[in-house]
Amino acid sequence: MTTEELQAINVDKSVDARGTACPGPLLAAKKAIGEITSGQIMEVLSADEGTKKDIPKWATKKGHEYLGTVEDSGYYKIYMKKG
């Protein structure tokens, strides 16, 4: 998806993990994905560089669809659709 498409997306779940270092955002994503149903969209907000790579790989490995990452001022918004 393009940055514009991602920015316009309606998310079903937003996880703000900007206050935590690795592996905090990954664990937050793992917990939160269990709270939505298949086909719903989740965004994870993180300021951690390692997480920017970790969460897309984790999402794909776990059967979810990684939609893309948008960089905001000092943090990332990582989008995925639950599989």
């Binding site: 592996p23 664990l27 984790w58």
Partner: peptide
């Protein structure tokens, strides 16, 4: 930290 990664997986 390693346990956390294993848990996520």
């Amino acid at each position: 930290v390693i346990l956390s990664g294993a848990a996520a997986d």
